[in-house]
Design a binder for these strands. Sequence first.
DNA 1: TTGTAAGCGTTATCAG
DNA 2: CTGATAACGCTTACAA
Lengths: 334, 334
Amino acid sequence: MSPRTLKKIAKELKVSRTTVARVLRNDKYVSEKIRTLVLNYLKRNPYIPNIHSGMLFSGKTNILGLVFPGDALFGMEFFTREIISGVNRAAEKDGYRLMLFTQDRFNSLECLKLYMSRLVTGFILLGIGKNNFKNVLELKRKKVPLVLLCSHIRSVSSFDCDNVKGGYLATKHLLGSGRKRIAFIHGHKNWVDAEDRFKGYKKALKEAGRQLIKEYVQYNYSHNYLDYERIAIEKLLTLKEPPDAVFAANDRIALAAMSAIKKAGRKIPQDIAVIGFDNMPGCENFFPPLSTVAQPIKDMAFTASGSLIKIVSLGKEKDCSRFFKPQLVIRQSA
Amino acid sequence: MSPRTLKKIAKELKVSRTTVARVLRNDKYVSEKIRTLVLNYLKRNPYIPNIHSGMLFSGKTNILGLVFPGDALFGMEFFTREIISGVNRAAEKDGYRLMLFTQDRFNSLECLKLYMSRLVTGFILLGIGKNNFKNVLELKRKKVPLVLLCSHIRSVSSFDCDNVKGGYLATKHLLGSGRKRIAFIHGHKNWVDAEDRFKGYKKALKEAGRQLIKEYVQYNYSHNYLDYERIAIEKLLTLKEPPDAVFAANDRIALAAMSAIKKAGRKIPQDIAVIGFDNMPGCENFFPPLSTVAQPIKDMAFTASGSLIKIVSLGKEKDCSRFFKPQLVIRQSA
DNA sequence: TTGTAAGCGTTATCAG
DNA sequence: CTGATAACGCTTACAA
């Protein structure tokens, strides 16, 4: 199918391209005769405008960039599909398109170029880690429209779960069911959300008059979940006084921890309770079914994209950050 | 930052835009004096060409479309991230960009429009179900460049796992460990890959001189994994002679099945062995660790995209389908 | 060695 | 009502 242009159509119909354009636009200054002539032609030969022409003329683009830094979404990769779905729903609603970028490490220069070349009108940055905050701020300083999803920086429009609250709820639940020695297993060191969950953990502990015990907080910076299992959890299990509950920074870590705990012959939740974070698909079928904290990821993605669209269409950015309510999902592991 | 154009630069430097363009292109017909003048200017004021202008001029685009129909990837949503990663690697290698489309149901007209509007140069169609084969064929008839990933249609370039072989291997393993009554739990009815896995199951059974027992094959067309668990597996467990092994069409189903089996008080693998398909992230930590069939999904995605790029850059399509070797991963559930 | 001009396919403006 | 014409920013002849 060779592309049909206004010019070609006009020539074939022996009218000017302006006239054809007018019919297309439903402009009223067209005689009925010519209108039906053109309309009939178009019915048989559909016309699809060259999109670059329009974008060149208007200087605008309706393409949103969704950026996945390689190390982003620490342990929540399984949300990718839902994030895409949420973002897409917002984009579709307002006639925007989605472009995808995955970068080994967050590349702000690349984003700037994409923006300057007028390919992309604004970005949704996914799960940006602390190590990249500076770059994001730099990008923002250069007036590139952007929002953060599943991470947050003050002064940048961020859409995240209220992780402090989530961590608080999880820990409080553990406390409420009589657990005395509650451990926390951290995620990746660049991951702010995990830090917030940890803050919530500390808050709940403090509120209950409990001391924070250093050995019960395990940092494990590896991304390999087998390592989490081997190192973080095994350290906990071999303590003189092992914990009777574990709050893992996400469900993937929780799953690995459960596996190690069972392998060590302890019962869940009798000996050690386990609670995760994310409510990952399938976790209702873990053994035992995993108690966890759900975040409304699709809604978060939808809202973040909607805000970006507002920013780019209005041309002015104001901070419209939002933190979403997490929800405790109690099953049987805690 | 207002966009810098060749014209503006030329004006500021009091040369013609052609000259600036020549310096940019490293054309040799430029005097050293002017070259350094322009180069110095560019160093301080980076120039990023308007991409639509180029695409308008060349009539070409370097944008690949990755299409997720809403119901695609039946039960393997967790691969999304890896698929994106594989596709992106291929795209990056040859300077292509990625555009993302998720559709409630596969919309071939939308794809056609995207192609005709010159936004997208070709498509990677993900996990297309049988109900959409006709639409894909139609699109192909209209000369829209496309490849299939995680699905296959004869006469369309398809990149899929050799699911027949995978099903065969899984079943053979079950047979080899002395299982007598092997059940199969199907996935979604539109999902060809599951059908192939079923073919492999039948082949292995036949080869071993076993009869296909109808009650041991459960179809469950729902997408809700709790339903799978409730209906498909419970039917199997309440049979007069329940199976001593279950081959599930994917790991999500296998996980649900394991959960139901344990809830019913049967031991895995002693009473009933379970094997899945996909080697989904985390399944090594299921209880017991899930035996399954791994497919090289990232490699598949990479290859599929590379082929699409070849097709669009060479401008001629020849069928370059490839079926990838699955790999049996034996853990403890079977 | 450098600059001018046409053209890609639109939209918008201004004459007829 | 209808049709030229310019402009968006680039590339590529072609002319100087």
